[in-house]
Every structure is written in C-alpha cells, then in structure tokens.
C-alpha cells in the first residue's frame, strides 16, 4: 500500500482503472500493484487489454475510470511530462526509422532528451547492439529491432521500463536473450513491467505476475502463490481403484484414472485423511502422489474459462 509520507514500496499502483471503448469495457476495475525493482509479468490472451492498460499507465490513453500512481505520484495529462522522463517504454511495435541506421536512431533519442554520449553508449551495450549500429534498421532482424527499441527506451536511464510484448515474433534464442536482458535490468534496480500472451516467455524472469482476462485481473502475485492457488490432483495408486473410488467419492470429487484414483481439490490434511480411511478399509496403497501441474496449466485454467 502507498504509505502516508513514508517511502513508497510500489512503482505503480492503480485503483479501479478502467477503459471503455464505444460502450464496451476493455479494461475494468484494475488494481495493479507493481513493487519497485521487480520484473512484473503482465499476462493475458490476445485482446485482453494489456496494451490498453500500458497505454493508460503512460497516459497515452485517458482512463474512463480510476486513477494511476507512479512512484507515488498521480499520473495524469498534467503530470505526465515530468513522469515520462523516468519511464522508458516500448508499446506494440519497436519504434525506429527504417531508413536510418541504429546509430542515427539513437542520436534522435539523444538529441530529443538531451542525453550524453555515455548514456547512449551504455544503453546500446546493454542490449549488445554496438556492432550493428551502422546498419540501416530496415535491414535489422526482428530481434535486433526489439533490442534497439529497448535501447531507445533505456537511454534515458529510466526507473521504470514498460515493455509491451517485447518477445513477440522472436525465435527461442531471441526470447532467451530478452529474458536475460530483463533479469539484468531488474538486477540493476530498474522496475520492469513486461507483457506477453504466452506465460512461458516470461515465467522464469518475472518475480510478480498479473494475469488479465477480458480486461479484468484474474490473479496478481508471485509465481508460487499462483501455483498454490490451484491445488493439483492427488493420485492414489491401488490394486482396487474401483472400490477405493466408491469410498472416497463420498467426501471428495473422485475419478478412476487407470490403476489410480484421482482426487481433486485435496489439501495435505485431506490427503492424509483419505489415505488413513482407505487403509482402515483394508485397501492396499502402493503410492500417493500429486499430479505434475505446470504453471501453464494454471494459466490456461485462469484465462481459458475452465478454472474461473
């Protein structure tokens, strides 16, 4: 929470943020909490409102409802000029003039924001583009364009970096490169908010996740909290699955799964209870285990409407 007078622990907070286009709510009731110094993975399927939210954070789009605070200060049209000086961003597609070289593009940024040569050199080195600066951007690969876009956002030495799908269209090596870059930036103290429609792309880099579905926040928290939120099924291996299932079905949703009984929604205590009941009823148990559940499954559950 934003303290009264005390240091602010959040880089971004929003309260009831919403945007309506032509009577259709595209983003609704969003309460973002982006802690300082984290990599915040902003996830959601296509059209869920990620770009719209990021544009509102940058004051490029006027929110229909709610308010935004960045570094504890309200972000509005009247204050955006000052705040934008601390925010680097990359929205939708990387900016950069194709007919100019990487160096010439960087010089545009440098002149506009009155940056010194060191800042530009550092930004370019961070994204490891220093060997390609004299090539025209038109001849860059997509990954190089993304990296140049990040360098253009980084040159102002922002405290907050807002990146909209920086891994979109990249090959696995390119994705990995961006992932490592984000980690490195966060280690350097920059707060990074990065969006993606694929959990896999930012799962390992993000320390906090926000999951958006149809413009609403479905989940916000750490990776572990997300995993804990949905309990994977318990599988009990037994030679008498039918008899065991008939018994456990009285207390828990149960399914026979081959040589095992599958129970959903069981916590540790519940599992212990079921096992002791089965043993008391003389059913042999060869093994008890939790089904492997990937973060991807949880994500699909949340966004695909299966879980919620």
């Amino acid at each position: 929470m934003v303290g009264h007078g005390g240091p602010v622990a959040e880089m971004i907070t929003t309260h009831d943020l919403g945007k309506t286009y032509g009577g259709r709510a595209v983003v609704e009731g969003l309460d973002l909490r982006v802690p300082k110094g984290c990599v915040y993975g902003f996830l959601g399927p296509n059209g869920s409102g990620k770009s719209t939210t990021m544009k509102m954070l940058l004051s490029l789009v006027r929110p229909t409802t709610g308010e935004i605070r960045i570094m504890g200060r309200p972000m509005r049209r009247s204050t955006r000029r000052e705040l934008l000086g601390h925010i680097g961003s990359l929205i939708e597609s990387p900016p950069a003039y194709g007919h100019l070289t990487g160096r010439e593009n960087m010089r545009l940024v440098q002149r506009l924001l009155e940056l010194n040569d060191d800042q530009v050199v550092r930004a370019v080195h961070t994204v490891r583009l220093h060997d390609h600066l004299d090539k025209r951007v038109r001849d860059y690969s997509l990954g190089m364009k993304q990296r140049l876009g990040i360098a253009m956002a980084l040159a102002r030495e922002p405290r907050l970096l807002i990146l909209d799908e920086p891994t979109n269209g990249l090959d696995p090596a390119g994705i990995d490169e961006i992932r490592r870059l984000l980690k490195q930036l966060a280690d350097g103290g920059i707060t990074v908010m990065v969006s993606s429609h694929l959990l896999d792309e930012i799962d390992r880099t993000a320390t906090v996740l926000g999951i958006l579905g149809n413009g609403r926040m479905l989940f916000q928290g750490t990776r572990d909290q997300l995993l804990a939120r949905s309990t994977p099924d318990v599988l009990i291996d037994t030679p008498e699955p039918q008899r065991a299932a008939a018994l456990t079905a009285q207390w828990h949703p149960t399914r026979v799964d081959g040589e095992a009984v599958r129970l959903s929604g069981l916590d540790h205590k519940g599992t212990a209870g079921v096992v002791s009941r089965l043993v008391r009823d003389g059913i042999d148990i060869y093994g008890v285990r939790r089904d492997a559940q990937s973060l991807e499954d949880v994500f699909m559950d949340l966004t695909g409407g299966r879980g919620l």
Partner: peptide, 13 residues
Amino acid sequence: QANGWLFSQTSGL
C-alpha cells in the same frame, strides 16, 4: 512506419 507517433508521445511530443 516507425511507430513514431507513439515514441514521440512518450518522449513528450
């Protein structure tokens, strides 16, 4: 072509 409007806007133009 360059998404330049957005970029300028985030730089204060």
